[in-house]
Design a protein around this nucleic acid. Structure first.
Length: 594
RNA sequence: GGGGUCGUAGUUAAGCUGGUUAUAACGCCGGCCUGUCACGCCGGAGGGCGCGAGUUCGAGCCUCGUCGACCCCGCCA
């Protein structure tokens, strides 16, 4: 074995060698980031996870080592021994943390050569994602991704630290578990021992953590992988990580305040940022009314204003039709300064944008010195225009965008348009952290595809007690004891107080249209457990990946996961999924039918 | 399942209304250089345009199909 490693141990990480080390003998190990060969003297930037340091090969120090150094190419793996010295006057590199010093190498070992990498590992590598993912182990050498994953590690460690100190017990729950067809599509695992039967990978440890409450653990947490076989997005991967939490003998405010403490601790220790707690709260109904979505980005205005009442008698066919069939008219005002950045052509683009959310049109009006310029205002009475002016507090130059449609389409389209405009018009200040709790979710929502009411959260969410009578009359109006934590317009966590009484649980299953046999088949073990003394309990789960995305300022969830999947849920590095040997299928009594 | 953007040397891109030997930068290889740090200078190699059809005298440019990456809708209790 090499004398380096066995006898000569690494003394410093490259990025940590600094001016204070001048005069010291150091041993460094890392990758050749860049080489500058001047014929006489050779400079190499040596890189490890902590950063870069310039190492210098000078023939006057050792002709042999200098000769050997000629072989060094990008990404060769090196060990060097040498003396740290202050760089000569005027030769400092202010771009480098270790730029004041350099290491004069007296001994070199090339541990390993490297093929020329398929892409440069320098700075902002604007390389197509398929190449990056195929050579993920090289992409991960880039400082940006190293930084993200190191942050991720810190956050997980600090979360554990905080929760441990707060009396939470980390318990592992099974990955091979029972399929529960409610909710997302399951990843299935065939059972070899039980032919024709399948495990499912957990979408979340929901029932297990509730069972742990019944078992008396009182406070549980787990940083745990979850699996959902649904289509991917920029912030969605088929396997993702949750900080999963459950507590007994508590109510909403108990959980909310401890979780605010958790967030404050994580942001303080990992980013040095102080959060203002408690976080503001917003009822679901108000979130939808003002922001169009249940994960509002409250870093900017552009709130939705309702004009339905003002326009209900308007002699404009389109509005009349929409309003008389239960639809709404809502509008967003863009102030003059930003409104003028939006051209007629942009307006066409915005119309197409809302089209993707089912909106059939997008009307606009611009207040100009000579009055309103708008394709629709000619259909309105002066009194109506006047009321719109007042409601929107319109000033000269303002641009108003109107949408008339069903409530769902109006909120969907304008909610997304609002976010789109904020980005386009640069309305979001960097480094803002806008947390908001969204509360009072509906317990159930009617599903047009399933033709029945479905749980908004999951069927174990407790309804608000006073709303219980609505179980007989108006299922859509029952509020849930649920809460989501939203950060900068992204849902980073969600949870609820659970049902702990078997009779209440039975009523909810009944309202969801699940027969007793179905309930028994799907959740029998859990129903049984509820009957053996379940404490009042509730919990929450945070999406660790999304949280890290925001903390790291990452554009994509793939940038905070070491080995992510593509949008088609494949791994370009390992080439999973793949076909398997026929023998493996036979062992599982499986047959590919098409 | 649907909509959109993209696919040209190792990489990132350019390639005009289809027209001889397909450009550039970086990277790579060789040479020179004792103070560079996106080192510099000189020289060189490297692709036939994701793949497959078609239209045409002629296709990187047009058409169709197909594969892949990304973004979005649906989906994500």
């Amino acid at each position: 074995m090499s004398d380096f490693i066995t006898n000569k141990k690494r003394t410093h990480y490259c990025g940590t060698v600094c001016a204070a080390d001048a005069g010291k003998e150091v041993i460094l190990m890392g990758w050749a980031h860049r080489r500058r060969d001047h014929g006489g003297v050779i400079f190499v930037d040596l890189r490890d996870r902590e950063g870069l340091v310039q190492i210098v090969f000078n023939p006057e120090i050792s002709p042999d080592v200098h000769h050997e150094a000629h072989k060094i190419r990008s990404e060769f793996v090196l060990a060097v021994k040498g003396k740290v010295r202050k760089r000569p006057e005027g030769m400092e590199n202010p771009h480098l943390k270790s730029g004041e010093i350099e290491v004069m190498v007296s001994e070199l070992e090339i541990f390993n050569e490297a093929r020329t990498p398929p892409f440069l590992l320098d700075g902002e590598a604007d390389i197509s994602e398929n190449i990056r993912l195929k050579y993920r182990y090289l992409d991960l050498r880039r400082p940006e991704l190293q930084k993200n994953l190191i942050l991720r590690s810190y956050v997980a460690a600090e979360a554990r630290h905080f929760l441990h100190d707060a009396g939470f017990i980390e318990v592992e729950t099974p990955f091979l578990t029972k399929s529960t067809p409610e909710g997302a599509r399951d990843y299935l695992v065939p059972s070899r021992i039980n032919h024709g039967m399948f495990y499912a990978l957990p979408q979340s440890p929901q029932l297990f953590k509730q069972l742990l409450m019944i078992s008396g653990f009182d406070r549980y947490y787990q940083i745990v992988r979850c699996f959902r076989d649904e289509d991917l997005r920029a912030d969605r991967q088929p396997e993702f990580t949750q900080i999963d939490i459950e507590m007994s003998f508590i109510a909403e405010d108990d959980i909310i305040s401890i979780m605010e403490g958790l967030m404050a601790h994580i942001f303080k220790t990992c980013l040095g940022k102080t959060l203002n707690t408690p976080f503001p709260r917003l009822a679901y109904h108000d979130a939808i009314a003002c922001y169009g979505r249940d994960n509002p980005d409250v870093r900017f205005g552009l709130k939705l204003q309702e004009l339905t009442d003002i326009l209900k008698d308007a002699e404009f066919k389109l509005f009349q039709e929409v309003i008389s069939t239960g639809g709404l008219v809502k509008a967003i005002k863009i102030d003059a300064e930003h409104g003028k950045q939006i051209s007629r052509k942009d307006l066409d683009g915005l119309k197409d944008f809302v089209g993707t959310y089912g909106a059939k049109g997008l009307a606009w009006a611009r207040l100009q010195p000579e009055g309103w310029a708008s394709p629709i205002f000619k259909f309105l009475k002066p009194a109506e225009v006047q009321q719109i002016n007042e409601k929107m507090e319109a000033k000269d130059g303002d641009l108003i965008l109107f949408l008339a449609d069903t409530p769902k389409v109006v909120h969907d389209a304008l909610g997304n348009l609002r976010n789109h405009l904020a980005k386009k018009l640069n309305l979001i200040e960097a480094d803002q952290l806008a947390f908001v709790w969204v509360t009072e979710f509906p317990l159930m929502e009617y599903s047009d595809t399933e033709k029945r009411f479905m749980s908004t959260h999951h069927p174990f969410t407790s309804p608000v007690i006073e709303d219980m009578p609505l179980l007989k009359t108006d299922l859509g109006k029952i509020r849930a004891r649920a809460y989501d934590l939203v950060l900068n317009g992204s849902e980073i966590g969600g949870g609820s107080i659970r049902i702990h009484r078997p009779d209440v649980q039975a009523m909810i299953f009944d309202a969801l249209g699940l027969s007793q046999e179905e309930v028994r088949r799907k959740f029998g073990f859990f129903i049984d457990a509820l009957e053996y003394g379940a404490p009042p309990h509730g919990g929450i789960a945070f999406g660790l990946d999304r949280l890290i995305m925001i903390m790291a300022g990452a554009e994509s969830i793939r940038d905070v996961i070491a080995f992510p999947k593509t949008q088609k849920a494949t791994c370009l590095l390992s080439e999973a999924p793949s076909t398997v040997e026929i023998g493996q299928l036979m062992e599982l009594s499986l047959k590919i039918v098409s």
